[in-house]
Amino acid sequence: MATYSTNEFKPGLKVILDGDPCVILENEFVKPGKGQAFNRVKFRNLKTGRVLERTFKSGETIEAADVMEVEMQYLYNDGEFWHFMDPNTFEQVAADAKAVGEAAKWLKEQAICTITLWNGEPIAVTPPNFVELEVVETDPGVRGDTSGGGSKPAKLETGAVVKVPLFVQTGEVIKVDTRTGEYVSRVGK
């Protein structure tokens, strides 16, 4: 079992905390004048996304997590699992709804996603930062209104609903930022 000592802590290191894989976000070494040194550490739980803070005596060790991030292509959803493939090795993994989480609403076949694997099992799916998706349902826009601040909801082919400017019509393809869920632009066909 690999372990890391506090003096190896650095942002990005993947460890196991309370049984869950976590990544170190910040590590601060604190040494009171003549006192016992300690490390204040912020982690993100890779399964839940929650940020937590812990304190360690300097020299303490924690278990390393076998966590990898790999780029994989989204293949299909069989109703229960989302299937992804490594385009280089053709290896496939199946992620459940917990791992896919919010990413589900952006996933279109062929999209290249970042899959977080823990001991080879997918625990999180990050969609591409930008996706191009077709509008399948939105109210007809008001003619002539091409700029104004107005916006309306539009349903996309993957099921996501985003706010779009009034001039966007059903059948058009739009670019969306998946990190914010915001409309970016129209995409010419």
């Binding site: 009171p32 006192g35 300690f38 937590l52 304190t55 360690f56």
Partner: peptide, 22 residues
Amino acid sequence: IPDAERLCGDEQRHWLDLLFSV
């Protein structure tokens, strides 16, 4: 402050150092 108990136990100076630092 998380884990303070595990860090300091029954040592007064550890508690003082921790609170002073933080």
